[in-house]
Write a protein that binds this DNA or RNA. Structure first.
Lengths: 194, 194
DNA sequence: CCTACCGATCGGTAGG
DNA sequence: CCTACCGATCGGTAGG
């Protein structure tokens, strides 16, 4: 089963590359580094992947998909804006902590994507942020949230959790949901009209 | 005045390098890139600087110094914890927005420092964060702030403003102080015991 | 500040 | 998956 072996090897390459991209950055990670950690020659990597950037593309777009899927699975149609926002952030943090290395690459290394991938990526990120922005706007209209620049607030909110992949230890006391709730409660209580 | 010319040239090199490090990342910026933008040969850079990393060190440690100076200038001894925290964050944001390119490098590129600079840098950053942590702890003891993991909260708080250098436009409507107050008010209101 | 150049390393290909 | 190798580029130095 050559195909199966290759698939596993490809997964292994992407996983190790993800770790190295997180630790050293994409540009400072060489294909020889990567090959060395896997135990093959650099040239052999190219039996499994097309290019160095293809690995980065795989990581970034897979993460983007995960964020969208998790958010869409939230079933928030009938909730109040504050509950919606909280669940959306919890969903976001759960994805962030599911694979911390891939999340860190997603957050920090996307700018090394070349066109047209870079534009696609930024477009998806904008769409994602817009879902949060809409919740803030709706919540303000409903008299739940203060009148603040929605985009600005969402960027601050997402940034306040996006550092977590670099720090999160899966063996810590708090679950991702608990962590997310702690952060979000502070933020949302501050957003609320009192 | 050879010395004066050299000093200006050195400043120019560091300034342009700061812009390139922000846009492309430290590792993806070559000395030939940098020299090209300045209009000299790559080899000529080394009449003014010792190495590529020296530029990064200059940026990172100058910014660190600026953050400390600004915070120390706050004169917070006699204030309540919530005022202290607010002023400390305002100070932080004012430094962040004073030179957005240098701030972005400070926030994102420090990991490319080699030892012992890396350890020194992280030690300074820890000291800085500890000043914020202490404000949270004192505020909790005084019954002003909720009981939250202080370190965790400070990291979330600082992260929620550290993305700003990448976005801030000096010609925007809000001053750095106003921006900082907006962000901080949300956060601090959420932290407060109600 | 330049020319000339160094050894090292880069991502990637050819061919097996 | 390896050997052998490509052209390009890297940070940096010598010497003027």
């Amino acid at each position: 089963m050559i195909t199966k072996i290759k698939l596993n090897r490809k997964q292994q390459i992407i996983e190790k590359a993800t770790q190295l991209f997180q630790k050293q950055g994409y540009a400072a990670t060489s294909m020889r580094d990567l090959a060395g950690f896997i135990g093959i020659e650099a040239a052999s990597l190219y039996s499994h992947i097309k290019s160095k950037e293809e690995i980065l593309q795989t990581i970034c777009f897979q993460m983007a998909e995960d964020f969208f899927q998790s958010l869409d699975a939230c079933e928030l149609a009938n909730e109040q804006a504050d509950v919606k926002l909280k669940e959306a952030v919890v969903s976001h943090v759960e994805v962030l902590t599911r694979d911390t290395a891939a999340s860190a690459v997603f957050v920090s290394e996307w700018r090394h994507l070349s066109e047209p991938y870079l534009s696609d990526f930024l477009s998806m990120r904008n769409q994602y942020e817009n879902k949060f922005i809409q919740i803030l706007i709706d919540g303000n209209k409903a008299g739940i949230f203060k009148a603040l620049d929605a985009k600005f607030t969402v960027l601050a909110l997402l940034s306040s959790v996006n550092w977590m992949p670099a720090w999160y230890k899966p063996n810590g006391k708090l679950s991702p949901r608990e962590i997310a709730e702690n952060v979000t409660d502070v933020f949302i209580n501050g957003l609320k009209v009192r």
